[in-house]
Computed example of a mutant assay.
Amino acid sequence: MYSKLITWTVLFLGVLWSHQLRAEETNSVGILHAVPSKCVALNQGRTCYADVKVTVNAPTEGDYCIRESLSKKILQCWAKADTFKYELDFSSDESLSYELISKQSRDVLAVTTIEVNWVHKVKTKKRRWRLF
């Protein structure tokens, strides 16, 4: 009795786990994908440099642009395309997001973020004053 219950539980969990893995694979590719999505600098506050490959798999053929989210600066545009690649020379001391927009409507279709991390945090020293 217990062996059947354990077998069914393991089988159910295995099926659930495989569906979750497939969902994560689909989400990781998505419409707009940047590799690497993380940039590591040595110290906090230092500029991080990386060569990032941005891949776009748009749902339909059209005119698209990639732009920075904060500054709204357009980096590259493509006409009558649904898949394309862009090489980004990333340099920043903070995480930045990039958007895929439709050229005609300027609607944001997808967003990806390149996170900036560091190895060493800046430590603030407490200064204690002594009279003697």
Rank of each mutant, 00 (worst) to 15 (best):
D63F: 15
L5T: 14
V40S: 06
D63W: 12
V54A: 03
K126Y: 07
T26N: 07
T113D: 04
Y49A: 05
K121P: 09
V122H: 14
A79E: 14
V29P: 01
F84V: 09
K72C: 08
S95H: 08
T26H: 09
R67A: 01
L16Y: 15
N43K: 15
S3G: 02
P59M: 02
Y2G: 04
I66Q: 01
L70P: 00
G62C: 04
T26L: 09
K123T: 13
Q104L: 12
E94D: 10
V116A: 00
E99M: 13
V56E: 07
T7E: 10
Q44V: 12
K125V: 01
I114D: 01
T47F: 14
E24Y: 00
W78V: 15
K80Y: 04
L88M: 10
T124A: 07
L131D: 01
V122K: 15
R67P: 00
A110Y: 08
L109V: 08
L13F: 15
H120K: 12
W118T: 14
V52W: 12
C48M: 12
H19L: 14
T60V: 15
S28P: 03
R67Y: 01
L131K: 14
V54P: 00
C39T: 02
S97P: 11
A41N: 11
A41H: 08
V52E: 05
S37R: 06
H19S: 13
W118P: 00
I101H: 14
Y64E: 08
C39Q: 06
V111G: 04
A50V: 07
L131H: 12
I74P: 08
A81K: 15
T7A: 10
S3K: 07
T7G: 04
R22S: 09
V108Y: 11
A81I: 07
S18I: 02
I74N: 05
S18D: 02
S92I: 12
I31E: 02
W78Y: 11
S91A: 13
K125Q: 11
L5F: 09
V10A: 10
L70V: 11
W129E: 05
L88A: 09
T55C: 02
L13Q: 13
S92Y: 09
V111N: 04
S37K: 06
W118A: 00
V10E: 04
Q76I: 14
W129F: 09
G62K: 01
A79C: 07
L11M: 03
T7C: 07
K53D: 03
A34M: 10
L109N: 10
V122C: 10
H19F: 15
K73S: 01
W8F: 13
Q20G: 04
Y2D: 05
S37D: 13
Q104A: 15
W78A: 11
E87R: 03
V119N: 03
E99D: 15
A41D: 03
Q76K: 09
T112S: 10
N117I: 06
N43A: 12
S91L: 05
L5H: 08
N43S: 12
K126E: 03
A79R: 15
K126R: 14
Y49L: 06
V29F: 10
K38F: 04
L21S: 08
